[in-house]
């Protein structure tokens, strides 16, 4: 629990400090990054802690976003609306999950791809409700009980808080017995099954939680962008989030968030400077693989290790001991 506390304090400090150094656009971008980070963390949960790689996760994001856009025309209470989004996307995940988790690995990837595409087409075809391929404006305004949230700074803090809450929730789940069992299943399904755990229930639990969180991110995005379109559920968006998770570091909670920030910054700024941005983006991905530390977060740990170990040597502490702890963590 202490660990969570420290992380949280650091996160809060980070969130508070950022507007001091950011420009208007920087604040907008950071806000978007918080939302994308929640989304990436939700996918990171099933990829890193349950071994399920989904290529249809944007489907849940889309459900959350469209819930706010469509139901928001009739319901103005933001808490209620957010709750409805989370519930609908969570339920969808639960129901589809029952069927999907029967498939494994690559088949799971592809069936979720089909699921995402299904929602994409649904949003596209239900023109009377969703505006079809042209998308629709979001009329709902975020109001958490202390006035309407409209300015970039207010949005920034709300999304920052949402990010921290999502992080804490995920951390709690991962540290919980259920979370540990889920991870155990990923590492050795047969053994956990033999130990008497109902493997599917735990997988389903993780998948539902992840879907609900993705829907939450989507609903926040809807408020932030005030426009939704079927692209929110396209498989390319799912693919991008998957890339965010992988470059950030699979198997960690915070890695996907880092992946999201790096990816969005790259996507945004390389394309500003050169029309050849896909080439540079591709090269970065290839280089990341070749460096082969498995994600930026592991990379940072690696550098941290070098610095830290040197200090340890100065203090005369045995190096391998520290290393071992690192592994245990």
């Amino acid at each position: 629990m202490k660990k969570i506390f420290i992380y949280t304090v650091l996160l809060i400090l980070l969130v508070l400090a950022m507007p001091l150094v950011l420009s208007d656009f920087g604040i907008n971008l950071a806000t978007e990054i918080y939302i994308m980070s929640i989304f990436a963390m939700s996918l990171g949960l099933i990829m890193g802690y349950a071994g399920m790689v989904s290529l249809g996760h944007a489907g849940f994001f889309g459900i959350g976003a469209y819930t706010v856009a469509v139901i928001g025309q009739y319901v103005s209470n933001s808490y209620l609306l957010l709750l409805i989004s989370v519930v609908i996307s969570g339920l969808t995940a639960l129901i589809t999950g029952v069927v999907f988790i029967r498939t494994s690995k690559f088949y799971f990837l592809m069936i979720t791809l089909a699921f995402g595409q299904l929602l994409y087409v649904l949003f596209w075809q239900l023109k009377p409700w969703t505006g079809g391929a042209d998308g629709m404006s979001v009329s709902a305004i975020l109001n958490l009980g202390f006035g309407e949230i409209l300015s970039p700074n207010a949005f920034y803090y709300v999304m920052g808080v949402a990010f921290i809450i999502a992080y804490i929730l995920l951390r709690l789940f991962v540290e919980s017995p259920a979370g540990k069992i889920t991870k155990g299943i990923m590492e050795n399904e047969a053994r956990m099954s033999a130990l008497g755990y109902n493997v599917r229930v735990y997988k389903l639990l993780a998948y539902t939680l992840s879907g609900a969180l993705a829907g939450f991110a989507g609903s926040l995005y809807s408020y932030f962008n005030v426009f939704v379109s079927p692209d929110l559920s396209s498989w390319t968006f799912s693919g991008q989030v998957m890339v965010m998770v992988i470059i950030g570091g699979v198997g960690t909670l915070f890695g996907p968030a880092i992946g999201a920030s790096v990816f969005i910054c790259l996507q945004n700024f390389i394309s500003t400077y050169t029309e050849r941005w896909p080439m540079i983006m591709g090269a970065i991905l290839v280089i990341l693989v070749l460096i082969g530390k498995g994600g930026i977060i592991h990379w940072l740990r690696y550098f941290k290790d070098i610095i830290f170990l040197r200090k340890q040597t100065d203090e005369g502490a045995p190096q391998n001991q520290v290393k071992k702890e690192e592994v245990v963590n």
């Binding site: 650091l10 996160l11 400090l13 980070l14 400090a17 950022m18 150094v21 950011l22 420009s23 656009f25 920087g26 971008l29 950071a30 990054i33 915070f254 968030a257 880092i258 920030s261 790096v262 910054c265 945004n268 700024f269 977060i297 940072l300």
Partner: peptide, 13 residues
């Protein structure tokens, strides 16, 4: 990690 993220984002803006 925090510092890194901050650097990235501030760098961007």
């Amino acid at each position: 990690i925090m510092i890194a993220v901050m650097l990235v984002i501030t760098g961007c803006s």
